[in-house]
Amino acid sequence: MIELRDIHKTFGSNHVLRGVNLTVPKGSSMVIIGGSGTGKSVTLKCILGLVTPDQGQIFVSGQNVEDVSRDPFLARFGMLFQGAALFDSLPVWQNVAFRLMRGALKRPKAEAREIAIEKLRRVGLKPEVADKFPAELSGGMQKRVGLARAIAADPEIIFFDEPTTGLDPIMSGVINDLIREIVTEMGATALTITHDMTSVRAIADNVAMLHDGVVKWTGPVNDMDTSGDPYVDQFIHGRAEGPIAAVR
C-alpha cells in the first residue's frame, strides 16, 4: 500500500502541492487525473524520492520512505516515463536489462539478455529489436521498450507517467491493454498519471482528481461519471466552463 499524508511542495513562489492525501491499496491500479501543472508528476517524484517534499509523510508498505535504504527501496519500483527516457547510448536489450546488469539484482550477461528479450516479447516486440538503438525505434515502440524496462525486474509497484501521450489512438489502446494485462498478471500496485480519459477507463480501479495541489475527489473508476464533483465532471467531459480555469 502507498499512503501520502499532507504532502506539500513549493518550487520558488509556485506552491505545487498543498496537502495531498492519497491511499493506493496493494495490488490495485490508481490513476491520478488533473490538468497540466497541477502537481501529478511531482507527486510521483515525491514517492520515488526524486523530489523531497517540504512537509508531510509518505509510507510504502507501512514504512516511512525517509527511513528506508534507497537501493532496496527503489528495487521494488518500475517506472515508465512520459518520453520513455531510454538511454540513447545503449541498445534496446541493455536498456531493458539495465537493472539486471548492475547492483543487487545483477545477473550474468547472457541471462540478463534472455530476460530482456522475454520482456520485449511480453510487450509485443520481436527479438530483432533487442540489438537496435532507441533512436531507430518509433515513439510507440520506445514506449513499449520503456514498459519492458519497467517490468524487467518484476517490481511490486509500477508507475506510469502519461503512458499514451504522443501516441496515435490505436497505439494508445495497445499500451493501455498491455498495462492492464501486465498489472493484473503481476499482481503489482500501479499508479498512473494521465490526461487521457480512454486510458483512465482502461487502466484504473480507482481514480484521484488532483487540482490546485490537493486531491479534490477519489473513488472507484465506475463511480467517476456519477461523482457529482464539479471538478471531475468538468475534467472528464472536457468542458471549458466550470471551476477549473481554462487559462492557467
Binding site: K45, L48, G49, L50, R70, D71, L74, A75, F77, G78, M79, F81, Q82, G83, A85, L86, F87, D88, F98, R99, R102, G103, A104, R149
Partner: peptide, 16 residues
C-alpha cells in the same frame, strides 16, 4: 539532454 529527457531520473529509479 539526458536531464531534459528524464534519463537522469530514470537512472535514479533504476537504483543507479
Amino acid at each position: 539532454t539526458m536531464k531534459v529527457t528524464e534519463q537522469i531520473d530514470a537512472l535514479v529509479t533504476l537504483s543507479t
